[in-house]
Design a protein around this nucleic acid. Structure first.
Lengths: 116, 116
DNA sequence: AACCTTTCGCAACCTTTGGTTGCACTGAAC
DNA sequence: GTTCAGTGCAACCAAAGGTTGCGAAAGGTT
């Protein structure tokens, strides 16, 4: 039933801040909590918590570098997430099309039997 | 930058319960808070709150029928949501491919100049 | 009509989550 | 060694998801 998707992964990318963070990490390469917070409307600590969430579900991983922690996207995991996005999208899309087809069939049948 | 997506729409479908509710409404047709709650691991009131959220962002709409309220998916809005899903997915996918390509280019260059 | 059942909406309350401020610690630079 | 930038931890707040409890309204029964 397709409902077998990773809920944790979904809720991870469901947050707009976290989605933007992934965007930034993809666009600009690895970054730190501080560097990301400078480009986001929240504090470093908030960013830090989001990074922890993304790290926990495996979408990113940290690499200590001196006093900094460089975070970067785990490409394989993100690819998996993208696949799940499109799976759900495709499922809904298919259902919508099926509903539309049924509705049209009924309509056609109605106009046929009722003659107009 | 694609970040111009409807955050409300995202957070609406970001919740696993709400995603399942949409699934159920698509699969079984219109339903009420009570009927949905019977197929979900939460109480009717929780379902009711979720329905309110989905209604507010326009993904579903209610149709009063006697003492019941029949909710059903707004197909156009859901189609829009699906489009946004695939937009974000495509963006990330493109970035991942770009990164991979660059990495491969660097690698190729390295092995060329270093001779192996 | 009176009664019971079902469905709903509202209010109070609890827990988790996203956000903030404040503080102490550490690596790097001067 | 002092100073500065980046982190982590803790306390505290507000919003969101969830629960229980209750009262109101529509529908079916007798």
């Amino acid at each position: 039933m397709s409902a077998v998707v990773d809920d944790e992964l979904w809720s991870a990318i469901g947050d707009p801040i976290r989605r933007t963070m992934i965007d930034l990490l993809l666009a600009d390469g690895p970054g730190t909590a501080t560097s990301l917070s400078r480009r986001l409307p929240v504090t470093r600590q908030a960013v830090s918590k989001h990074l922890a969430v993304l790290d926990r579900v495996g979408l990113i991983h940290a690499e200590p570098a001196g006093r900094e922690r460089h975070y970067q996207v785990d490409e394989a995991q993100l690819a998996r997430a993208v696949a799940q996005l499109s799976t759900v999208g495709a499922t809904w899309d298919a259902r919508l099309r099926r509903i539309k087809r049924i509705a049209e069939t009924i309509e056609r049948h109605r106009t046929n039997t009722q003659g107009g």
